[in-house]
C-alpha cells in the first residue's frame, strides 16, 4: 500500500467557476470574482487543503460478466468495472481526499449566515478534489509505466453499473483510515470532499474519452458541471 501526501494543488478561477455551474467567466459580477479570489487566497493561507492519496495494487485473477475477482479472493461486483478492465492484469484501488478543514469552514460560513462564501468555498473544495483525482490518475499512469502497462480510465462506485455498496469491499483493500477517510453507514465517504476509484493496469485497457464518461454518468441529463458539452 502507498500513502501520498504533501501534494500541492493549484487551482484557478475557471475550475472553481465550473464547479459553480458557470462556463463564461466574463458574465460573472466582479464582486463575486473578487470573493472567489479572496477565498482562494484564504484556502491556501489557512491551509484548508490537506490533500492525500492512499492506494494499493492487486493482481486480477478473473473477470466475470458483472464481477471481478482479485487474487486475494476479494470480489468486486460491477458490470461497468468488468467492461473497463478486460485485458487488465492488475487493479489499483485508490482513495483521495482534501481532508476535513475546508468542509468545516463551509459549514461555519453557512451556519454564520454567509451562504455565498459557503457556496463558493464548497466549489473550491470540489475543484480541489477534481484536481486530486487527476493527480491520482497520473500516479496510476506511473505505476502502469513501471510495469510496461497502460492505465485505464478511472471509475467510481455510484456510477451506473457500479453500486455504491461496493465501497465496502473497496475500502477493505485500501488503507483509507490512514488518510482520515471513512465510510458512513450509507457508503458515503467522510470527509465528503473525497473520491474513491479503481483503475485497471494492463497491456490493453479501456481508456474512455471524457465525453463518453460524462454520457455514462447518472447526472448526464442534469449536470451543471460537465467537462464536455452535450
Amino acid at each position: 500500500m502507498t500513502i501520498v501526501s504533501g501534494i500541492h494543488i493549484s487551482l484557478d478561477k475557471r475550475q472553481v467557476l465550473r464547479r459553480e455551474g458557470i462556463r463564461q467567466q466574463s458574465s460573472v459580477k466582479p464582486e463575486i470574482m473578487a470573493l472567489i479570489d479572496e477565498l482562494l487566497a484564504s484556502t491556501y493561507d489557512k491551509h484548508l487543503l490537506e490533500p492525500a492519496i492512499a492506494y494499493d495494487v492487486y493482481a486480477i485473477s478473473e473477470v466475470g460478466h458483472d464481477s471481478v475477482q482479485l487474487d486475494n479472493s476479494t470480489e468486486i461486483r460491477s458490470a461497468s468495472l468488468s467492461s473497463l478492465i478486460s485485458g487488465g492484469r492488475e487493479l489499483t484501488v485508490a482513495v483521495c481526499t482534501i481532508g476535513p478543514k475546508l468542509e468545516k469552514q463551509v459549514t461555519d460560513y453557512l451556519g454564520g449566515r454567509e451562504p455565498l462564501r459557503g457556496l463558493l468555498l464548497d466549489g473550491i473544495g470540489s475543484a480541489a478534489v477534481d484536481s486530486l483525482v487527476q493527480e491520482t490518475c497520473r500516479l496510476m499512469q506511473n505505476e502502469a509505466s513501471l510495469r510496461g502497462y497502460q492505465s485505464s480510465s478511472p471509475i467510481s462506485p455510484g456510477i451506473p453499473g457500479f453500486p455504491i455498496t461496493e465501497q465496502w469491499p473497496l475500502f477493505q483493500l485500501v488503507p483509507s483510515e490512514e488518510i482520515g477517510v471513512r465510510l458512513a453507514p450509507s457508503g458515503i465517504m467522510v470527509p465528503r470532499k473525497s473520491a474513491s476509484m479503481v483503475i485497471a493496469l494492463g497491456e490493453q485497457v479501456t481508456v474512455r474519452k471524457q465525453g463518453e464518461a460524462c454520457a455514462r454518468c447518472n447526472l448526464s441529463k442534469t449536470c451543471h458541471y460537465r467537462l464536455v458539452a452535450k
Binding site: E20, G21, I22, V28, K29, E31, I32, E114, P115, L116, L119, L120
Partner: peptide, 10 residues
Amino acid sequence: FLPELIYSAE
C-alpha cells in the same frame, strides 16, 4: 447563476 442568486438573497 447560483452565486448571483445567493448574493441577491444576502
